[in-house]
Every structure is written in structure tokens, then in C-alpha cells.
């Protein structure tokens, strides 16, 4: 797109980017320093000082004392059920909205979009009562139901945006090949939509892994707590031990980082469809 960049400009350009990048990385470096120091080291020297000795065992301690394995397992379990199931449900709906002869396609899409306007807060009390009434309060199925619900508007928006960019000619070709609608969905649309699905996987995994408000209200059993609740409880109980807290924070971030790195190359392409409206 840029045709010619002069070399001084280029230097300035890089300098600005590098400085910004360093600023963005600072909190991370800082939390890492804290995580590998001993408490004495932390108290006696300024925080930006290099650790006198690297205390990897802080991670082990945080893992044990913070019950991190339990929290991570719980959250991972929720993610592994919620993310694929949610994408399937959303994809089916987006398929109906873009690929089937459907008079209500646009009103229904608007109807789903309205969901993005409803802040979760507005649903909490009735949801709490509802879950209780159907005996799902504090159970995994109840949590799945709620997480699925809040993912639907965004998922449909992204997938519908992407499905629309897939040429209709392919449908006709499929029709000639004798594919039914379901076949079309499974064999043509889904495989072609991998970038959008990858994008959704990242977003959904992140949103679920990081979710706090719903978890705070709908999960009360300690043995079902998710990672965000666990971290906060850890802070409540160990509010004075910054080294362990930082170590716990870093541990908790690993899974999302991995998912992000795995799928990030699809990212921009997956979004393109929906950005174009």
C-alpha cells in the first residue's frame, strides 16, 4: 500500500513502535520480576531491580497453595464444552440466515444483534431465579447454558458476516452434486469458514476463560470455581504475598496465550467479513 518510505522516516517509525512496544511489555516484565523474587528481595530492593536469584519455586508454591490445578481444570472443562458447542449452534443459525430461503432472515438477524446491547447485568437476578427454578443453579449444565446464551449474538454476527462472503455459486454446485442443505453446511460452508471459526475459537475461549461476573454469581461451590474466581480468592487470602500472587497470575495466563498463538494467523482474515458489514 505504501509505495515509498524514506529511510529517516523508517527509523522514526521503528523507534516509535519499539518504544510503544516496550511500554506495553513493562507491566509484564514487572510482574515476572515480582514472581521470581524472594519476599526479602522484593522488600529490600526497588521493584525494577533484577532479581538477586531466580526463585522458580514460587510458581510451584503458587500452584499448590492457590489450588491452581483445580481452577484451571474447571475452567478448561467449561471452555472445552462451551466453545465447540457454541460455535456449532451459532453456525447452524448463521447458515439459516445466509444460505436458506428464509423470509425472516433480516429481522431475525436484527433480533439476535439486539442481544449485544443487553448488558449481562440486566439479566442476573432473573437468571438466578430461573436457574434455581429449573434446578440448575450451581451445576455445570446451568453454567453452560448461560455462557452459551451470552456468546450467541457475537458468534452469529461473526459467522454470518463470513458466510456471506462465500460465493453462492458453490451452493449451486453443491446442489448439482446432490448435497442437501445439511450436507452443504457440513461439507462446504464449515470447511470454508475455518478463518472465521478460528477467530471465534480465540474470542470464545478468551471470553470464557476470562469471564468473571457470571462466574461470580452462578458458581458458589469452591470445587467448581473458575480461574478468575480462584485468583481473586487467592488475592483475598494471600493479599500480602505479592511474589506468589504474581506467579499465580502468570500461570493463569498461559492457556489463553497458547490458544492465541495457535490460532492467531487466522485472526485478521476471520474478522474481515464482519468488519465489512
Amino acid at each position: 500500500m505504501e509505495l515509498r518510505i524514506s529511510s529517516t522516516r523508517k527509523v522514526v517509525h521503528y523507534a516509535v513502535l519499539i518504544i510503544l512496544a516496550i511500554l506495553f511489555l513493562l507491566p509484564l516484565v514487572f510482574i515476572f520480576f515480582t514472581a521470581v523474587k524472594s519476599n526479602a528481595d522484593l522488600a529490600s530492593k526497588p521493584i525494577y531491580a533484577f532479581p538477586a536469584k531466580i526463585h522458580w519455586e514460587n510458581f510451584v508454591k503458587a500452584w499448590d497453595q492457590g489450588k491452581m490445578s483445580m481452577y484451571m481444570k474447571n475452567t478448561l472443562f467449561i471452555c472445552l464444552v462451551k466453545v465447540p458447542l457454541g460455535i456449532l449452534i451459532e453456525a447452524l443459525a448463521a447458515f439459516a440466515l445466509t444460505r436458506l430461503k428464509f423470509r425472516w432472515s433480516i429481522p431475525m438477524f436484527s433480533f439476535f444483534l439486539i442481544g449485544m446491547m443487553i448488558p449481562m447485568q440486566a439479566t442476573l437476578v432473573p437468571l438466578n431465579m430461573l436457574l434455581n427454578a429449573i434446578h440448575l443453579k450451581g451445576t455445570y449444565p446451568g453454567i453452560f447454558l448461560i455462557y452459551l446464551g451470552f456468546g450467541i449474538p457475537f458468534g452469529i454476527m461473526i459467522l454470518r458476516g463470513f458466510f456471506r462472503t462465500i460465493p453462492k455459486e458453490l451452493d449451486e454446485a453443491a446442489l448439482i452434486d446432490g448435497c442437501s442443505d445439511m450436507g452443504k453446511f457440513l461439507r462446504i460452508i464449515l470447511p470454508l469458514s475455518m478463518p472465521a471459526i478460528a477467530t471465534l475459537i480465540i474470542f470464545d475461549f478468551m471470553a470464557t476463560w476470562n469471564e468473571f461476573l457470571l462466574a461470580q454469581i452462578f458458581i458458589s461451590d469452591q470445587s467448581m470455581r473458575t480461574i478468575t474466581l480462584g485468583l481473586l480468592a487467592f488475592r483475598g487470602d494471600w493479599s500480602t504475598d505479592y511474589t506468589l500472587m504474581s506467579a499465580a497470575v502468570l500461570i493463569s495466563v498461559l492457556p489463553v496465550m497458547i490458544v492465541y498463538l495457535l490460532f492467531q494467523k487466522y485472526f485478521v482474515n476471520g474478522l474481515a467479513g464482519s468488519v465489512k458489514g
Binding site: 439459516a96 439476535f112 432473573p126 446464551g149 451470552f150 450467541i152 442443505d181
Partner: peptide, 28 residues
């Protein structure tokens, strides 16, 4: 063919109504 799109929409619609629409109206 008229019903079909609704069948595809059904799971999303049910969950959406249960989790978002009904509760937010009820809180109103």
C-alpha cells in the same frame, strides 16, 4: 422448506430467549 430455517435456528433461538430475552424483560 418454510419450517426448515427455523429448525436450524431453533437451538440458538431457544438459548437466546432463555438466557437473554426473557431475563432482561423480567428485570425490567
Amino acid at each position: 422448506t418454510k419450517v426448515k430455517p427455523w429448525l436450524y435456528l431453533l437451538p440458538a433461538l431457544i438459548i437466546y430467549l432463555t438466557v437473554i430475552c426473557f431475563p432482561s424483560l423480567y428485570s425490567l
